[in-house]
């Protein structure tokens, strides 16, 4: 297993290297010039920037160097733990990520918790009651969950809160350790909306796997020996049926880290997605590039962790 882990970790290097080139090139070939974006604002009457001003600012921001030089500078910085600074605020990108990450992590953890707590019992119920009304109900709800875009539900929920209850959550975000009540109130709605989609995937997966396991010989033997239904399902069948769900949760974690952008906007949550959107809008290259690299590293790490946990849980799996 150690050998496998080292091999996977070594694979990180070329993957991240290729990703870094792609991210860097894509950002730079996009039309637009951050120096011009900073200096030329039609919102501010009287601000008239000359081409000379724009050139000077470009030099100040380190954008006058050739692309390879800029790229190498960025990578060199990353290797020594310096992710650079925002072109707009000159704040270190690490500081921006450090500030936003806990917010998105809160939302992600809540979503995964709700999805697991909802999907496993529902999926099991649907499998056990196959082709009866609980199964139909679960399937209908999960199809709806998969087919309905999260942002649309979010807008409907917000509208419902406003029109019916004349209430929306406070626009101020507090961490769980600062104000648990406010934190839960603000994050409950987006977490519930996001978890509907993810629990739909999981519930369908649990149902399908459980149905397959329930048809296995060892389960049939257990039934024929006269064991009660509940222990067979809970102790023997469900445990095995849940293994693939673990992989799914890993994928969900990575999807949620980068996939909460719109909901963060709608519910006014200052997370990573919100930072990414703002940085892209402003062509703030260091912030965008480093955030994308962060997402990639996170995805690779989570995938590796899931694989390793999978092996620990399922002794039948051995790493080559």
């Amino acid at each position: 297993m150690w050998k496998y882990m080292v091999k996977r970790l070594l694979l990180f290097v070329p993957t991240l290297a290729i990703a870094s080139v792609l991210v860097f090139v894509v950002m730079r070939v996009l039309p637009g010039d951050v120096a011009r974006a900073i200096l030329v604002s039609r919102e501010t009457p009287g601000v008239i920037a000359s081409e000379n001003d724009i050139r000077q600012l470009r030099e100040q921001l380190g954008l006058a160097d050739s692309l390879p030089v800029q790229y190498l500078g960025w990578v060199r910085g990353l290797l020594v733990g310096n992710a650079g600074v925002s072109l707009y605020t000159r704040r270190p990108v690490a500081e921006i990520i450090g500030e936003r990450l806990p917010v998105t992590l809160h939302l992600t953890v809540y979503t995964v918790l709700i999805s697991v707590l909802v999907s496993v019992p529902l999926g099991a119920l649907a499998a056990v009651k196959q082709d009866r009304w609980p199964d139909h109900l679960v399937r209908l709800s999960t199809i709806l969950g998969l087919a309905t875009p999260g942002f649309w539900i979010a807008l409907l929920v917000l509208l419902l809160l406003v029109v019916v209850f004349r209430w929306v959550p406070s626009p101020v975000y507090y961490h769980l350790w600062e104000d648990p009540k406010e934190n839960l109130i603000l994050l409950a709605f987006p977490a519930l909306i996001l978890s509907w989609r993810f629990s739909s995937y999981q519930a369908r997966m649990v149902r399908a796997n459980l149905l397959e396991v329930l048809r296995q010989d060892y389960i049939r033997t257990a039934f024929s020996k006269g064991l009660a239904d509940r222990p067979i399902v809970m102790r023997h069948a469900l445990r095995n049926a849940l293994l693939p769900v673990l992989t799914l949760i890993g994928g969900e974690l990575t999807a949620l880290m980068s996939g909460t952008v719109i909901l963060e906007n709608i519910f006014n949550i200052p997370g990573l997605g919100d930072a990414l959107i703002n940085a892209m809008r402003q062509r703030d290259y260091p912030v965008v590039e480093n955030l994308l690299m962060f997402y990639m590293t996170f995805t690779l790490t989570i995938n590796l962790v899931v694989d390793l946990v999978y092996a620990v849980i399922n002794p039948r799996i051995r790493f080559a």
Binding site: L155, L158, V168, P171, V172, E264, N265, I266, F267, N268, P270, D274
Partner: peptide, 9 residues
């Protein structure tokens, strides 16, 4: 001053 990321919000 409340920071609002979205006009509808």
């Amino acid at each position: 001053y409340f920071v609002t990321q979205d006009a509808a919000t």
